[in-house]
Design a protein around this nucleic acid. Structure first.
Length: 881
DNA sequence: CGGGTCACG
DNA sequence: ACGTACGTGACCCGG
């Protein structure tokens, strides 16, 4: 056979697309086109192309048309489920992509892709090509020879691994040759293609029979010698079906191909048209393969470094013409280095404060623009406030990142590249791609890559402004944006700047106590276990508990034994080690995350200045990082003691206010359920009342167990209840749980109706909204996956409730902060914990602060049930709760 | 860097 | 039959 030095890659199109679709999470581009299968497909074939370096590539697809197999057996592939729509729409898309890449697509009426692949593999082999077949389908293994390689990619979590089969590998795995593999299928059948085979013969038996007799025909010749007896009987009875099944399973090697091998030459895959389509599909990682095109876009403005205030007038003129500017404040850790100002898509001016221009002058220039009524557009307003002193009243200062978050709160980030992609249809290199881990300082400041980043950070918000704001208006979120989200930016900034005072010595002392006890527990646990090991490693702990020590409690996770609290609680009485481990866990958590962890965040001013994020959660809540000040221990006394280390400054005390049952009140209002509304209007114990209603006992006869159960149901309702979840939580049977739920819905009929309505609305529109118009998209409801869809339904029930509560506290938070400032009080808002506000209040202002807090929080929303606020004060956070 | 665990609302 | 409560973030382990 001539070695031509050529190698052809033959790809099983539908099979790989299918694998990719189920291997990747749902992805969509800005048009809402589903793209996960296409991306996965390309990742797989590029990986293989990189490994194989083929000279020729082609992709075979089935044509939706009966083949000879349907004539042989009309039920062929009869049981196959239709493709989900999200996958179906990607079939033309991948063909479009392959065409753009000059990759040959082969398909032919009357033939399946398998037959084309089979034929082509033989033709190419004879013509002296090396042949590599790529499919997700093991049927194709029958095509393997010593020269023809079949590769089967597996998309596992983390990456793609590929199994490789020459003829010998098939033999090693199945004990039969590739051709005998066909005979095996004749006996065992194939459920996915609805090939019947012989009843009662599976993979094991089929393999044995074929190994012994070589083929279906051979086996039939020796029908009397077939073992086991059951197989013999069935094979005799279904011999014709076996012969037919073999015929169905055999891939044809002699189709007529109406194209030449040379047509499949792989060249010029990375051209203008494939570039454009990758861009449209937002395959950013693939765009890097275009080496001379890189990812430079038409949106790369010129950046002019301005070193003299004399040039300000020029910029101001340009700004006045466009009536809006994009502004980015460039700074190092704590020094402003310059301000980038974009007046149009082509020109960005960088006011250089690292030499020459006084930062105060630069900032003043920005104030002048703002005061002239020019709209200031920023990527991230909060992070600029340290240097430019804008205020809540500056209605012409916009945060485009926050606006983009409102339009779709499900994105991971709202950086310039995200906004450009979503709203300008432009793929820009990310900040990370341009500058990686390089540090911005006075020396790196004027370098090309940093300048490019600055220019994007200034120009993108400007260009996206109209699009984003129009869309906000169209979606009915303009008021939410202006009245709630924008002021929230300032409030969060204020809280970050103020920080919270923490008593370092107190934390260290607390840590010492913990460590002493941790050591005791450690020694005790190791003593029980009989050997030294890392208690913090579930991987080591699991086997020691459940194998070495023989404590009952089976596997739970993919990686091994679950050793979580609920598992350990169940076996607490089996061995004293369990109790020690639970206490050890609790104490090490308190020590590492809180006692030791928090000390690392205390600044020179003795305070912790965390970060509040406004664009993270899908529901509209705020999140807190570095450190997370929204999850300081509270539930258990030992942990709660940590709060004694959070203290007000001299002459101040803490005033803490929190909403009572805000989410259930929101639910009562939104659903209009009279029964629950009345409960709140009468200001009764809601969980006891629920218990009384659901269990049909007088309120004063409700047992604590009944109340606990009712409370769990109330929580469950807010979370988008499932009988399973409730039963897990309460440790009751699923039947009991679903009975509770049924009784609950019977009591609160309008709540049931409301929740159903939310799900229906979400299914129709694709999203739900809060009382203030905040949107939560729920793409999961369209999923073909049951689990995902169920999740979507729970989200549809939960989000309007959690989201409305989030809106309410934001409104209260903003008003409280502004009011305190307006009144010129010394007291300051310093923390928000979802339904709670913490104020560092001057001693002489405590009364007015309490009144103000309660007043603003109670009246933050106009609802048909009252909002109740609890308020407390103390000399530390422990006392004030 | 993902999974397990656990802290909060 | 599927495998679950909703929303977060930090720490630790181990590949």
């Amino acid at each position: 056979m001539p070695d031509t030095g050529k190698k052809i890659l033959i790809i099983d199109g539908h099979s790989i697309l299918n694998r990719a679709f189920y291997g990747l999470p749902d992805l969509t581009n800005y048009e809402g086109l589903h793209t996960n299968a296409v991306l996965g497909f390309l990742n797989i074939i590029f990986k293989i192309i990189d490994e194989e370096n083929p000279t020729n590539v082609c992709v075979a697809f089935d044509v939706k048309q009966p083949t000879f197999r349907h004539l042989v057996y009309k039920e062929y592939k009869g049981t196959r489920k239709p493709m989900p729509d999200e996958l179906r729409e990607q079939v033309p898309l991948i063909k479009e992509v392959l065409t753009a890449m000059n990759v040959t697509i082969v398909e032919k009426g009357g033939y399946e892709a398998d037959d084309i692949i089979g034929t082509l593999s033989r033709v190419a082999d004879s013509a002296g090509y090396k042949v590599v077949i790529v499919s997700g389908d093991r049927d194709l293994l029958q095509l393997a020879t010593d020269n023809i390689l079949v590769r089967i990619p597996k998309t596992k979590a983390g990456g793609t691994t590929i199994e490789n089969y020459y003829a010998d590998d098939v033999k090693d795995l199945y004990g039969v040759t590739p051709v005998q593999f066909i005979d095996m299928k004749g006996l065992m059948g194939d459920t996915s293609d609805n090939i019947p085979g012989v009843p009662g013969i599976g993979e094991k038996t089929a393999s044995k029979i074929i190994q012994q007799w070589g083929s279906v025909a051979g086996a039939l010749e020796h029908i009397d010698e077939i073992k086991p007896p059951k197989a013999q009987k069935n094979l005799a009875e279904f011999s014709e079906q076996a012969i037919m099944s073999r015929e169905l399973a055999a891939i044809k090697l002699d189709c007529e191909l109406d194209f030449k091998l040379e047509d499949t030459k792989y060249e010029n895959a990375f051209n203008d048209s494939s570039y454009n389509i990758f861009k449209r599909l937002e395959f950013k990682s693939l765009l890097k393969k275009f080496d001379n095109k890189q990812t430079v876009s038409e949106l790369k403005p010129d950046i002019t470094v301005v070193n003299s205030t004399a040039d300000f007038a020029y910029i101001e003129d340009a700004a006045k013409k466009s009536e809006a500017v994009g502004v980015y404040v460039a700074h190092s850790d704590d020094m402003m280095l310059g301000i980038a100002v974009a007046c149009d898509s082509k020109n960005v001016y960088l006011i250089n404060c690292s030499s020459g221009i006084d930062p105060d002058e630069a900032v003043k220039f920005i104030y002048d623009l703002k005061n002239a009524g020019i709209i200031i557009c920023m990527e991230d307003l909060k992070s600029a406030l340290k240097y430019v002193d804008f205020h809540e009243c500056d209605t012409n200062v916009l945060d485009i990142g926050v606006a983009a978050y409102l339009l779709n709160p499900m994105e991971d980030s709202y950086d310039y590249d995200d906004v450009a992609k979503e709203y300008l249809g432009n793929i820009l290199p990310s900040e990370k791609e341009l500058i990686g881990k390089d540090e911005l300082n006075i020396f790196t400041f004027i370098s090309d890559n940093f300048l490019e980043v600055f220019s994007y950070k200034a120009v993108v918000p400007l260009l996206a402004k109209d699009i984003v704001m129009d869309k906000l208006a169209k979606e009915g979120m303009l008021e939410l944006y202006n009245k709630v989200e924008l002021p929230t930016v300032y409030t969060l900034y204020d809280m970050e700047k103020r920080g919270i005072r923490v008593d370092k010595a107190e934390l260290e002392e607390y840590s010492k106590k913990l460590e002493k006890r941790i050591q005791e527990l450690h020694d005790s646990i190791i003593g029980y276990a009989g050997k030294e090991f890392n208690i913090n490693s579930p991987k080591q702990l699991g086997p020691i508990l459940f194998e070495d020590m023989g404590i009952p409690g089976g596997k739970k996770t993919k990686t091994g034994y679950s050793t979580s609290v609920d598992v350990l609680e169940k076996v607490k009485n089996e061995h004293p080690i369990i109790g020690d481990i639970l206490e050890y866990r609790q104490l090490t958590k308190l020590n590492s995350t809180y006692a030791v962890g928090l000390v690392n965040y205390i600044s020179d001013d003795g305070r912790i200045h965390g970060t509040f994020n406004q664009t993270i959660t899908a529901t509209g809540r705020i999140s807190s990082t570095e450190p997370n000040l929204q999850n300081i221990p509270m539930k258990l006394e030992l942990g709660r003691l940590i709060r004694k280390a959070f203290i007000p400054k001299e002459g101040y005390i803490f005033v803490d206010a929190d909403y009572s049952q805000v989410e259930l009140r929101v639910l009562a209002h939104l659903s209009g359920d009279e029964v629950m509304k009345n409960a709140f209007l009468n200001n009764v114990d809601i969980h006891a009342t629920t218990a009384s209603e659901v269990f049909e006992v007088p309120i004063d006869e409700v047992t604590s167990l009944q109340r606990r159960h009712a409370k769990a149901v109330n929580f469950g309702i807010v979370y988008g209840i499932s009988a399973f979840g409730l039963s897990e939580d309460l440790g009751i049977s699923r039947k009991e749980a679903s009975d509770f739920i049924a009784k609950y819905y019977d009591t609160y009929k309008s709540i049931k109706a409301y929740l159903d309505e939310q799900v229906a609305h979400a299914k129709e529109k694709g999203y739900v909204t809060t009382m203030f118009g905040r949107i939560r998209p729920i793409p999961e409801l369209k999923s073909s996956n049951f689990m995902q869809r169920s999740f979507g339904e729970r989200v549809a029930m939960n989000s309007p409730i959690q989201g409305t509560a989030a809106d309410i506290i934001k409104i209260a938070m903003v008003r409280v902060n502004m009011k305190l400032k307006e009144l010129g009080l010394k007291s300051q808002l310093i923390l928000q914990i979802h339904d709670e506000l913490l104020i560092e209040a001057a001693e002489d202002e405590v009364d007015i602060v309490k009144k103000l807090l309660v007043d603003e929080m109670m009246h933050a929303a106009d609802m048909t049930v009252p909002l109740e606020v609890g308020v407390a004060s103390g000399n530390n956070w422990y006392e004030a709760k």
